[in-house]
Write a protein that binds this DNA or RNA. Structure first.
Lengths: 223, 223
DNA sequence: CAAACATATTAGTATGGTCTAATATTTTGT
DNA sequence: ACAAAATATTAGACCATACTAATATGTTTG
């Protein structure tokens, strides 16, 4: 059984290595706000437990076992977020720090019950995928708003990062999941976008925001 | 902020001292299954933090502050149990070990939301009182079934101890909270009771069981 | 390529929370 | 009342998880 602390390291590694398949001690250190030597010795431990591959001065990788255990923590986190929003009426921006704690509860039946009550969702309220009990995740089928072109119509499906500040920003602009966005114009010099949605027109979104919004192109018949 | 471990000691002390107002190191030790020297040094810590009164070789008492913090942990535990049973569909006997973990979550809004969704209950699914946010508890208004007399009609309101074995025992006999029990006969020599309820008649309950069942006398007009 | 910088590791320290063994005190039973 | 038993405390060890300071390795850049 892994401790909460170990689970946090595994989760960090899971998230940081999701694209490249590996991460450095320094990245984990900054991500968790824990000093490098501490990370280093913890990685030694996880390596002895067969959860991480750690050769001196080389980047860190999760073993298959480590990846599974990390995925299960992420699963618990995202199911919790989903449950808090859908079944308890919390707002997007309130649930993260609660889920950060509940994700370490050891009680599979508790999370499976949430899963059942939620109807076996595959994405959480931020739109991020929820790993299955076997650690499988659906590949994120969404693209960044910033990768779309003028004239396209897209539906907001997820946010790339779920900082409270971004979520509040979206709330004040009535930008919720499911909103259909029409791209009116893109400023070439700073890549900011003018968009319209839900009756609002010419709303300006900076490229920073556009990078964080994950959308799905609407096909012709939906228009 | 108290750690989970400290919270467990406070809770233990709270429960053990609920009748006499104090408890011994030895009792806490047996209750938590932690050796006496460990308990002793932890009590020293809690005493320095102003949560416990601990003079050498004297029984332990909670300070007002300690009592409040302990009550809040109990509140979180019992609200959680209540929520798991009422809102998620778990059985009585499944929820204890989940609540033991969730009670240490630091997120008042989470528990207040449960409270709200449950309609501000004052007793948990085992019938034990749920302390308020201010640490106040309604005095247990129930009496033991074993203190009742032949001919009385009582409603099952709570169980004195919530061991899985007792709860299963009650389940198999369809003895649920709210069931109205009629006391037909009491064996003087072993204090076992013959009772009837929900169509069943002459069910025998040993005195051990009767001691664990908390009931409320039904007044005449309810009969 | 060598110096400077970034990253990684080792060594040593601290704290929380547990243990066992030894000792001290209180309670109990004859 | 005194010896035995139960309870409480002190002392010393250990592991998990953090830190700082010092050192080693790897990377970047003049």
């Amino acid at each position: 059984m892994n401790s909460s602390v170990e689970e946090n390291y595994l989760k960090a590694l899971f998230m940081l290595s999701s694209t490249k398949g590996e991460a450095t001690v320094n990245e984990v250190s900054r991500f968790l706000d824990i000093k490098m030597p501490t990370v280093n010795s913890m990685m030694k431990r996880l390596s002895e437990k067969g959860l991480v591959i750690h050769e001196n001065y080389k980047p860190l990788k999760l073993t298959e076992k480590g990846r599974l255990e990390a995925a299960l923590v992420v699963r618990k986190h995202r199911l919790t977020e989903m449950y808090l929003v859908e079944k308890m009426g919390f707002g997007w921006e309130e649930v993260h720090h609660i889920a950060e704690q509940i994700e370490h509860i050891h009680a599979p039946e508790f999370f499976n019950k949430m899963d059942e009550l939620l109807g076996y969702p595959t994405v959480d309220p931020h739109g991020s995928p929820i790993p299955s009990e076997e650690g499988k995740i659906v590949l994120n089928p969404y693209l960044k708003l910033s990768d779309c072109m003028v004239g396209e119509q897209v539906e907001l499906m997820a946010v790339g990062q779920s900082s409270a500040s971004l979520l509040k920003y979206l709330n004040t602009r009535e930008l919720a999941l499911g909103v259909v966005i029409h791209i009116e114009e893109i400023e070439p010099f700073d890549r900011s976008m003018h968009v319209s949605y839900s009756g609002r027109t010419s709303v300006v979104l900076t490229s920073l925001v556009c990078d964080s919004l994950l959308v799905r192109r609407l096909n012709e018949e939906t228009k």
